[in-house]
Lab assay of single mutants.
Amino acid sequence: MAEQVALSRTQVCGILREELFQGDAFHQSDTHIFIIMGASGDLAKKKIYPTIWWLFRDGLLPENTFIVGYARSRLTVADIRKQSEPFFKATPEEKLKLEDFFARNSYVAGQYDDAASYQRLNSHMNALHLGSQANRLFYLALPPTVYEAVTKNIHESCMSQIGWNRIIVEKPFGRDLQSSDRLSNHISSLFREDQIYRIDHYLGKEMVQNLMVLRFANRIFGPIWNRDNIACVILTFKEPFGTEGRGGYFDEFGIIRDVMQNHLLQMLCLVAMEKPASTNSDDVRDEKVKVLKCISEVQANNVVLGQYVGNPDGEGEATKGYLDDPTVPRGSTTATFAAVVLYVENERWDGVPFILRCGKALNERKAEVRLQFHDVAGDIFHQQCKRNELVIRVQPNEAVYTKMMTKKPGMFFNPEESELDLTYGNRYKNVKLPDAYERLILDVFCGSQMHFVRSDELREAWRIFTPLLHQIELEKPKPIPYIYGSRGPTEADELMKRVGFQYEGTYKWVNP
């Protein structure tokens, strides 16, 4: 592979701008107003304001973009700056750019259920340069409990009458099928589907988006991507930290609602779906819905739930269990780990287990898709061969690698495990991989909904998990304890083995 010439960040961002501006969906010269509902909250200060700053800094926003914060707290732009700027990672050389960014910011205080507050917000936006005809993007960085009041008031008082209007809704989209349907029906009564952007930030990850290209742009994968060759698929999300004093919020939802029903299920769809007619948003989402419709409700015998306990040999936070978090209700049975087996009941995947695993306070930070292939028929190497695996590593250190057998150097035919490896950090030294939120917010500006969740996708996802969630809430089974920093409950490994996964433990990928 030829040595790549190092590029400056300015040059890299210039390439990104060229890609972005050559499309006809990006209205570079139009006025846009980006409204952050819930501007005083954690999500706004840690993710949304920093993301908008990065896009502005790199010249990736339309030229005439204004940012308006809205929340109940009586704040000023200076207050917003004070709480969000520490997350910007701005350099001293960017000081003038930073001043320009905050000059485009404003803030309006108001209630979430008060019509007069929204009329005041609308008047404020109209007073901005060309504000009355601007395109408006409303980001709901809010708890779902206020979605209905907020969307109703936005629709009645704050819509642009000339430009387009788009609304970005953060997960969780309800707690179960019934609450999700209620919320979807409410929002759909106010906005068209092409105006609604239900954001799952995992769909903005580079390697998640790469799944489609790997599958449908490489001839070698087509013939082997089926039940005849693939023994099982494992989708993993692991965090090495616990709730760390923020367990009160987590306890309301648990690990299945927080990660599995959305992030992991979306990745499953991209692995299992048929080739779409095109890369058009609805063509892709149509195929994802077909996959979900082929999955039956989760069966309790295919589920393992766990909850982390303190590690007596650990240090600091590792010595504390979930129930030691003062914000967690006493005696909570909320799971911090889950392993679930699903089956896609169609011709391509009949009988292939899709194993979804996620948890907190585990032994490493990792998100990946792992396809394990069947054993080689007619073994001539005296059971020395391990199964081939194709691994798409989402985070950290984005990579695609194939675990395969090669001859060990020497005189004899002794096979050993090795890999074919594409590590993004080595291959793409001159490429700026956008943060997931950067990519998705740019998608909203461009009107691309491919990486957002459609209402029928959402409904099918909740259909699969709601009976299990209701059973857990009714019966309150005690989750299996696992030690902070471990791989999780051993019962999860036993479940995976029972459905056909072979864990060798003899080879570990190392970032080159």
Rank of each mutant, 00 (worst) to 15 (best):
V12T: 15
F26A: 10
I187K: 01
L203W: 00
D24R: 11
L140Y: 09
N218V: 04
N229I: 05
S160Y: 06
Q11L: 11
Q209K: 06
T31H: 07
H124W: 11
S160W: 06
V169I: 13
N122I: 09
Q133E: 10
P240R: 07
S40V: 03
T236H: 07
D24Q: 06
H32V: 09
I167Y: 07
P172T: 02
Q119M: 15
Q161V: 13
N153V: 07
G59K: 09
L16F: 13
Q209V: 07
A115T: 13
L20Q: 10
D228G: 09
K205N: 00
K82C: 11
F88L: 15
G222I: 07
R175G: 07
D194H: 09
D24N: 14
I230G: 00
F34T: 07
G163A: 11
S189K: 10
L20H: 07
R136W: 06
Q119W: 08
Y70H: 09
I67E: 01
T31W: 13
R104I: 11
R166H: 09
K95S: 12
R175E: 13
F21A: 13
S189E: 12
G245K: 10
S73K: 10
W225D: 01
H201W: 01
E19F: 09
K95H: 13
F34R: 02
Y70V: 14
S40M: 03
L20D: 09
L7S: 13
I48C: 04
L61R: 01
G242A: 07
N229W: 03
P172Q: 02
F101Y: 06
N153P: 03
G38S: 01
F21Q: 10
K46R: 14
N226A: 07
Q209R: 01
K46S: 03
Y197T: 01
S29K: 15
I224C: 13
L98C: 08
P62V: 00
V146W: 04
E252V: 11
P143R: 03
A6D: 15
F241D: 04
S106I: 13
Q28Y: 14
S106V: 13
M212Y: 04
L214D: 07
A127S: 10
V77W: 09
C232W: 01
I154S: 05
A25C: 15
A134K: 09
Y249H: 04
G248S: 06
A25T: 15
H129D: 13
K82S: 11
F237T: 08
Q195T: 07
L190V: 13
D79I: 06
K238P: 03
L55W: 01
R104G: 05
G69H: 05
V146N: 05
Q133P: 10
K95E: 14
Q22L: 15
T10G: 08
F216S: 04
N185V: 09
L75W: 12
Q22V: 13
L75R: 10
G247E: 08
I80R: 01
F21Y: 10
P143N: 09
C158K: 01
N210S: 10
L61C: 07
E85K: 07
F66Y: 15
F191K: 03
E252Q: 15
T51F: 07
G59E: 08
F237G: 06
R192E: 10
G59A: 07
L190E: 07
G204H: 01
E193S: 07
I256G: 03
H186R: 12
V77R: 10
S157D: 13
A103E: 15
S84E: 09
R74E: 15
L75Y: 14
L137R: 02
H124F: 13
L140I: 09
R57V: 06
V68D: 00
Y70W: 08
S29M: 09
R215S: 01
I80W: 06
R219D: 01
R219W: 09
R136D: 00
A44L: 03
I67L: 07
F191Y: 14
Y118A: 07
D113G: 10
H186C: 13
D228Q: 13
E19H: 15
Q11M: 11
W54R: 08
K46P: 03
Q28M: 11
A149Y: 15
Y202R: 00
F221I: 08
P86E: 11
G222V: 09
G69V: 02
G131T: 12
A149Q: 10
S180D: 01
I154D: 02
A71C: 05
A109D: 12
R17I: 09
G247I: 06
D181M: 10
I33F: 11
G131V: 09
T51P: 00
N226D: 12
P92V: 10
G248V: 01
V233Y: 02
F253L: 02
L98V: 14
R219K: 09
R198H: 03
F66R: 13
D228L: 08
S29E: 14
G14E: 15
T51K: 05
I52Y: 06
S160R: 09
L98G: 00
Y118S: 05
N165L: 09
P223S: 10
S106W: 08
T10E: 15
R120Y: 15
P92C: 11
D113I: 06
S8T: 15
L16N: 12
D30Y: 14
T145V: 07
M207T: 03
K46L: 04
P172H: 00
R215E: 01
N185P: 02
I36H: 02
Q178F: 13
K238V: 01
A90V: 15
H186G: 09
R219F: 08
F88G: 00
Y49N: 02
G59D: 08
S8M: 09
S184H: 06
N153I: 08
Y49L: 15
A109T: 15
Y118R: 00
A141W: 03
